[in-house]
Protein backbone atom coordinates (compact mmCIF):
# COMPACT_ATOMS: atom_id res chain seq x y z
CA UNK A 1 0.00 0.00 0.00
CA UNK A 2 1.29 3.48 -0.90
CA UNK A 3 0.47 6.50 1.25
CA UNK A 4 0.94 9.75 -0.61
CA UNK A 5 1.64 13.18 0.86
CA UNK A 6 1.73 16.18 -1.44
CA UNK A 7 4.05 18.85 -0.07
CA UNK A 8 4.48 21.04 -3.13
CA UNK A 9 4.83 24.67 -2.18
CA UNK A 10 4.96 23.89 1.52
CA UNK A 11 7.85 25.18 3.51
CA UNK A 12 9.99 23.54 6.14
CA UNK A 13 9.39 22.10 8.61
CA UNK A 14 5.82 21.24 7.59
CA UNK A 15 6.62 18.46 5.07
CA UNK A 16 8.87 16.64 7.53
CA UNK A 17 6.27 16.85 10.31
CA UNK A 18 3.59 15.46 8.01
CA UNK A 19 5.88 12.69 6.83
CA UNK A 20 6.86 11.74 10.40
CA UNK A 21 3.22 11.54 11.48
CA UNK A 22 2.18 9.42 8.52
CA UNK A 23 5.21 7.16 8.91
CA UNK A 24 4.31 6.44 12.52
CA UNK A 25 0.79 5.38 11.51
CA UNK A 26 2.05 3.04 8.78
CA UNK A 27 2.52 -0.70 9.07
CA UNK A 28 5.72 -2.49 8.16
CA UNK A 29 6.12 -3.07 4.43
CA UNK A 30 3.99 -0.10 3.47
CA UNK A 31 5.36 2.71 1.33
CA UNK A 32 5.20 6.46 1.92
CA UNK A 33 5.46 8.72 -1.09
CA UNK A 34 6.26 12.38 -0.41
CA UNK A 35 6.32 14.94 -3.22
CA UNK A 36 8.49 17.97 -2.47
CA UNK A 37 9.73 20.93 -4.46
CA UNK A 38 12.38 22.44 -2.23
CA UNK A 39 15.89 21.09 -1.93
CA UNK A 40 16.07 21.83 1.78
CA UNK A 41 12.89 19.80 2.37
CA UNK A 42 14.51 16.90 0.54
CA UNK A 43 17.65 17.23 2.67
CA UNK A 44 15.57 17.31 5.85
CA UNK A 45 13.69 14.16 4.86
CA UNK A 46 16.92 12.37 3.93
CA UNK A 47 18.62 13.32 7.20
CA UNK A 48 15.67 12.22 9.31
CA UNK A 49 14.76 8.95 7.57
CA UNK A 50 18.34 7.77 7.00
CA UNK A 51 18.55 7.32 10.77
CA UNK A 52 15.52 5.02 10.84
CA UNK A 53 15.33 1.43 9.80
CA UNK A 54 13.76 1.99 6.38
CA UNK A 55 14.76 2.14 2.74
CA UNK A 56 14.51 5.29 0.76
CA UNK A 57 14.49 6.18 -2.91
CA UNK A 58 14.45 9.64 -4.49
CA UNK A 59 13.41 10.48 -8.05
CA UNK A 60 13.73 13.94 -9.56
CA UNK A 61 10.63 13.83 -11.75
CA UNK A 62 10.84 17.43 -12.96
CA UNK A 63 13.66 19.92 -12.49
CA UNK A 64 13.29 20.90 -8.84
CA UNK A 65 10.50 18.42 -8.02
CA UNK A 66 11.27 15.20 -6.19
CA UNK A 67 9.26 12.09 -5.34
CA UNK A 68 10.59 10.49 -2.20
CA UNK A 69 9.64 6.83 -1.57
CA UNK A 70 10.13 5.54 1.95
CA UNK A 71 9.52 1.87 2.72
CA UNK A 72 8.91 1.02 6.34
Amino acid sequence: MVHEIMCMGEICPLPLLKAKKKYEEMKEGEILKVVVDHRCTLDNLETYFSKLNCSMEVKEVLKGVWEVYIKK
Partner: peptide, 11 residues
Amino acid sequence: PYIAIKKELYT
Protein backbone atom coordinates in the same frame (compact mmCIF):
# COMPACT_ATOMS: atom_id res chain seq x y z
CA PRO B 1 8.88 31.82 -14.38
CA TYR B 2 9.63 28.13 -13.88
CA ILE B 3 9.95 28.49 -10.10
CA ALA B 4 6.36 29.73 -9.95
CA ILE B 5 4.81 26.83 -11.91
CA LYS B 6 6.59 23.70 -10.64
CA LYS B 7 3.62 22.52 -8.63
CA GLU B 8 1.19 22.97 -11.51
CA LEU B 9 3.53 21.21 -13.94
CA TYR B 10 3.72 18.25 -11.58
CA THR B 11 -0.02 18.06 -11.05
